[in-house]
Design a binder for these strands. Structure first.
Length: 161
DNA sequence: GCCAACGTTGGC
DNA sequence: GCCAACGTTGGC
């Protein structure tokens, strides 16, 4: 039996990189994660996993679409580049501290689901993104929560097909 | 722009 | 190992 698909939520500021940018580019390197817990989630991602693409620092902040993991974790080159915003002088090439994954475009929601809507929905109780002070930029999401958000967004997706 | 929440750093 | 200082995230 194939391993079960996992579900995630990944945050991006749309001014920097939005779901529309992913739609245009088809695929991107998900790099620059510099938080250990988020890094550990990246490392746990498997090819074929899906992620809610969440717009943070947006008006309103919202789940904006779906991305899928197209390449599993590998070293994030930006950590070795002194000119990069994501440079980490304490990371060692022989033992890289930070990883990135590649993600591909799946869907841009016609009706993005705002944070306020997520918070108001009893079916989403316990979802990490709606917890006060939850800044984690890569989070696990349950399958039930994932598809409930899809339904709220007007997406036809109701399963992992 | 403000500021609460929270992670990281570094002195001790 | 504690914890104060500091930096960042991200909603509002």
């Amino acid at each position: 039996m194939a391993a079960q698909r996992q579900y995630w939520l990944i945050k991006s500021e749309p001014d920097v990189f939005s779901i529309a940018d992913l739609k245009r580019d088809k695929t991107t390197h998900w790099e620059g994660v510099r938080n250990y817990q988020a890094r550990n989630h990246l490392a746990a991602m498997k090819k074929g996993d899906w992620a809610l693409f969440y717009h943070s620092n947006a008006d309103p902040p919202a789940a904006a679409g779906i991305a899928k993991v197209s390449r599993e974790a590998y070293p994030d080159d930006a950590q070795f580049d002194p000119k990069s915003d994501y440079y980490d002088p304490r990371s060692d090439r022989a033992k890289p501290r930070w990883v990135r994954v590649d993600v591909g475009f799946v869907e841009q929601f016609k009706e993005p689901v705002s944070l306020a809507t997520l918070k108001d929905d009893p079916a989403l109780e316990g979802m990490l993104v709606i917890k006060k002070g939850m800044r984690l930029s890569v989070q696990p999401v349950t399958e039930a929560h994932f598809f409930h958000v899809c339904a709220l967004a007007g997406s036809k997706r109701t399963s992992g097909a």
